[in-house]
Every structure is written in C-alpha cells, then in structure tokens.
Computed example of a mutant assay.
Amino acid sequence: MTVPAFNSVAWFEFGTDQPEKVKEFYGELLDWEYVLNTDTPGVTYHSVMTPGAQQPTGGVWESEGGRDLGAEVLMEPVSDAAGFTFARSQDTAGNHFGVFSVPAA
C-alpha cells in the first residue's frame, strides 16, 4: 500500500438516503465521477473517482437499517469480495460512522 500524497484524502464515505443528490452536488462541486461497486451483494455503493486518481478514494452508499444501543444501524455487517467485513451506524448525534475488519492473514 502506498502512502497518500500530502494534503490528499486517503478514504471517505457518505452514508445517505439521497445518494443521487449527494453525487450530483459533489460531482459538480469537485468534478468527481462515480463507479457502481458490485463487490458487496445487497449494498448500493458508488466508488468515488477524484480528478487525477487512478483508483477510488471514497464512496457514496445508500443507508438503511434499524437501531442498536441508542444508535441507528445503517448497514448490518457484510463482507466484500476481498474479505473485508464492515458495518455502518449513526450515533445519537446523527453522525455516520463505519467499522471494519480486515481479512484473516
């Protein structure tokens, strides 16, 4: 893995129930392009391609789910084709966050 260039973004995600609006806004504002990522069945996820990037630097995913420990579960744990397992939640202040684990070595 290479180290991100100074003053660049290593990875980010937007969890939203309005992904088309988010993609339109940031696409126009920052000249982002989007690629549908089909690595995780049942998850609507668009990888973000920033200008000049050769690989995705983030994503936009459609949120949904229930509640857990006072927070809202936006996406139950799932594993992608590479073996990463991740889930997404919204804390009690409304902030979205994600947790993940890497594949066993």
Rank of each mutant, 00 (worst) to 15 (best):
A5T: 12
N7L: 13
S8Y: 04
S8F: 06
A10M: 13
A10C: 13
W11Q: 07
E13K: 04
E13Q: 05
G15S: 13
D17I: 08
E20H: 09
E20P: 10
E20F: 02
K21C: 13
E24D: 15
G27I: 01
G27A: 06
E28K: 15
L30Y: 01
D31M: 07
W32L: 00
E33F: 02
L36E: 14
N37Q: 04
T38H: 03
T38F: 01
T38Y: 00
P41I: 10
P41R: 07
G42I: 06
V43R: 04
V43Q: 01
V43N: 02
V43L: 09
V43C: 02
Y45I: 03
S47H: 02
M49H: 04
M49L: 08
T50P: 12
T50Y: 00
T50N: 07
T50I: 06
P51I: 13
G52A: 02
A53Q: 06
Q54R: 15
Q54L: 03
Q55P: 05
Q55S: 04
T57C: 09
G58E: 04
G59A: 11
V60W: 00
V60G: 05
W61G: 00
W61V: 03
E62Q: 12
S63W: 04
S63I: 06
G65E: 00
R67F: 11
L69T: 13
E72H: 10
V73T: 12
V73H: 04
V73D: 03
L74C: 10
M75I: 09
M75R: 14
M75L: 15
E76N: 02
E76F: 10
P77D: 04
P77Q: 02
V78S: 08
V78I: 08
V78Y: 01
S79V: 13
S79F: 00
S79E: 12
S79P: 14
D80P: 07
A82P: 12
G83H: 07
G83L: 02
F84K: 10
F84M: 15
T85A: 15
T85L: 09
F86D: 12
A87Y: 01
S89I: 13
S89F: 05
S89G: 13
Q90Y: 02
Q90T: 10
Q90P: 12
Q90D: 07
D91H: 05
A93N: 13
G94Q: 08
F97T: 09
V99S: 06
F100T: 10
V102Y: 03
V102N: 11
